[in-house]
Design a protein around this nucleic acid. Structure first.
Lengths: 352, 352
DNA sequence: CGGATTGTTGATAGAATTCAAGCCCAGTGG
DNA sequence: CCACTGGGCTTGAATTCTATCAACAATCCG
């Protein structure tokens, strides 16, 4: 029997909800506030947590955030309960890693459906990740997993994307991991007031969309095509099975994730303490690095000022101004809107 | 025979170095610039890359960064060659993920030693990660790996750390993963001009130092104890074997990594577009979340203004000012230096 | 060829850092 | 026991930097 932990400070709603769940043959644990809920989660390891957002002392976000810190609790499916149906709140919840969102007041049927979906999802994810599918060849005697089938992307479905089309968007459930064959794709997160921050610009050879997939949550960011692109789609199920069965691929993706985090930390430092000038310089280098893949030895940066500004988190005007400065200082050249770096070394070593 | 790719634009040095390596029975591939080097790396998959930093067109950093994007090329050991022995440059290289650094001019013996160390390291890492050690019980017939030995941390060596002592520092080679039993630990990266940015403050239950370990690079950040702490040390070898043999643990750490990256993206957005006020509010909530683990239902924030300022990437004075504002607006209370949140909801929903 | 979008430049206002000074508390040594 | 010193915290004033608003030029596109 599945155990569900219900954290809700209003007695009526709590009892009511518990009742509904019990009737559907779930074991229900009840907690009256965030703190109690956290303790209970740790002790009981429920299969699912339903949690109110607005609570005294420790609110729903706090609960979720605390759980995230323990590797063994972070993957318990989590449903937020809330009176606020504000889009921004929902996004906040999703970003915190919630699996679903129920807006009060809700019907019993809604609740049960959400619960079932979450539980099923988790099971499937786990199953996919741990199953070792039958192999063509017998497993080696040593149990060595390194030499499993290599990372084979040939002969797969290729999908073409036009410029400006969305590869995926915030809030969607990841159904594919994408591998870029051609073109450029930007990945960005959006800010409340419409501004966006580009977290990466990827070219051929890169994988995108795997983070959310691996964490088993909905996308928290968006991916949009900058230049007509061809992507290989790797379906969820297949990707997870790979990860579950092939040690080498797991290793590679773990590295990718770790590197990703490291890159982002650099970005944080950059945004926190660097002057606009330095941020622009770093941005240029970063973007160019992204463009220089494999054979495509790009030497010019050809993206809109707006996008470039969003890479470094500044206003477009500020960017333009700085670019003009750089141009005067002969650090870069601008022809037909494209930016050519004339002195990479100097750009890299700019003082703040 | 091991293949080594040497990327260096100066002919003498290139030929000279290649000679040394050849004599030691390595197969040497030569490239004259970054672009050529990249292509060759892709085609030949060398076991090690030695690369000059200062090169026309595409410099060393660019090469390394490009390689990082391919999961299957990112783990080739990488040694930088440079005339600059500047500490800052070395750090930059290490952060880019280099395994070692050779300062020109170097002796043949130095070179060979570095090469061997790197190759050996890589092998050992790989071996540890892929070996499935003999288990107490026979592997189940289905080959299911989920139920391996659980995450057992009991009965391990516990080490005590005094306040202000360093758990690990930038540039060191990770030899342990740490698990916090008691106390608080801050993790930070340092900026050229001495400023630091705190990327996390962790309390009991958290793991630290695993990112660098998993990526198999030296630490890029520092961890320092804020409050007398007790940590469990998990030795490198053991940790990697766990990861290699236990599907469940791998899953958990993958999630942790993915979540980490997501958190950092939030941080980027925060730094990029939020006002100081909002950043302070978020910082307070973030820190409090970090403190609220398990039973320790902390309700006060008790860290120095300096540290708090470094969490949000601002000047201490700016922080203090904002805190005063918050106090006046009855959002927080300050008693004996400790900060108490009076209105978490309002803090969370502050407008920019 | 208009109309729209994108890029550039100027002027201005606002925000946050920096420099400076003073306060408060704890620890130290006379 | 008390004065003294130093570190952390707070407040004030000046300065610097960057965003914003506005106008205009350039480019794209049907």
């Amino acid at each position: 029997m599945k155990k569900i932990l219900l954290i809700e400070d209003h007695e009526d709603l709590r009892e009511n909800t518990a009742e509904i769940l019990s009737l559907s043959n779930y074991e229900v644990l009840k907690a009256e506030d965030g703190k109690e809920g956290l303790e209970m989660a740790r002790k009981e390891r429920p299969d699912l947590i339903i949690c109110d957002i607005m609570m005294p002392v420790l609110d729903g976000y706090g609960v979720k955030n605390s759980l995230q810190k323990s590797p063994d609790l972070s993957d318990i499916p989590f449903i937020f309960l809330t009176a606020l149906a504000d889009k921004d709140d929902i996004r906040k919840g999703m970003r915190a890693g919630a699996d679903d969102y129920l807006t009060k007041p809700f019907e019993g049927i809604e609740l049960l459906k959400a619960v079932e979906t979450c539980l099923r999802r988790k099971d499937r994810h786990q199953e996919a990740l741990t199953r070792r599918p039958a192999r063509d060849r017998a497993p080696s005697a040593t149990g060595d997993t390194t030499a499993d089938q290599p990372f084979d992307l040939t002969g797969r479905e290729i999908k073409e994307y036009r410029k400006k089309s969305l590869v995926y968007a915030e809030g969607q459930r990841p159904t594919n991991v994408f591998h870029i064959l051609k073109g450029k794709v930007k990945t960005y997160i959006s800010h409340t007031d419409g501004k966006e921050l580009i977290t990466r610009i990827d070219g051929p050879g890169a994988f995108i969309g795997y983070t959310a997939m691996l964490e088993d949550v909905n996308y928290r960011d968006n991916a949009q095509v900058l230049e007509d692109a061809e992507l290989i789609l790797i379906p969820r199920q297949e990707f997870l099975q790979w990860m579950g069965s092939n040690g080498e691929i797991v290793r590679q993706f773990i590295r990718l994730l770790a590197r990703n985090a490291a890159e982002k930390e650099e970005g944080l430092l950059n945004l926190a303490y660097n002057s606009l000038r330095k941020r622009v310089a770093n941005g240029l280098l970063q973007v160019l690095d992204g463009f220089r893949t494999a054979g495509a030895g790009a030497d010019a940066i050809d993206i809109s000022r707006e996008n470039l500004a969003h890479v470094i988190g500044s206003a477009t005007e500020s960017l333009t101004r700085t670019l003009s400065e750089f141009k005067e200082e002969k650090l870069i050249d601008i022809r037909e809107g494209k930016i050519y770096l004339l002195n990479e070394g100097k750009l890299r070593n700019l003082v703040n």
